[in-house]
Amino acid sequence: MKFKGIPTWVWYTWPLLLMAIFFLVTQGGGEVASNAGKRLYEQHCQSCHMPDGMGLGKLIPPLAGADYVLQGGPELACVLRYGLTDTILVNGEFYSRPMAGLPKLPAVEVRSILLYIRSAWGNSAPEISFDEVQAALNDCAPTE
C-alpha cells in the first residue's frame, strides 16, 4: 500500500518522530528544571513560604513579587544553603526571624529552587546559570 505525497523516509520513521516530539514536549530542558524546582520547593520551602509564595504576615517574607528575590542575583544561592540570621528588607518590610539553611542540598538543586522561585507566581527574573550558582557558593563557603 502506497501513500502518495508522504515521503518514504517519513513512512518508515514516523514512530521515531512521534517519540522525539513526545520527548521534547514532556522532557524539555526548562520543564525538567522547573519540575524539579517545584518539587524541591514543596519539600524544603513551602511549609514556611506557603504554596502561593506569599509567606506569613510579618513573620515570614513573601517570595512572590518580592524585590529581594527578583532583584537578587546568584548570591541568593547562599541564602538557600546557609540560611539567614540578619534582618532583611523585603518590599519595604523588615523581617528578622532566622531562616534555616539547606547545607546538604547540592548546587544543582539549589539552582533548581532558585529558578523556580524566580519564575513561579508571576515572578520573572533572569535565569541564573549553574556556573554562577557554583561561583557564588564557593564565595560564601565558610572559611576553615
Binding site: S47, C48, L56
Partner: peptide, 10 residues
C-alpha cells in the same frame, strides 16, 4: 517551629 506551625497559624 520550622514545619507545620506556619500553616496552622495561617
Amino acid at each position: 517551629c520550622p514545619d507545620i506551625c506556619p500553616m496552622m497559624s495561617k
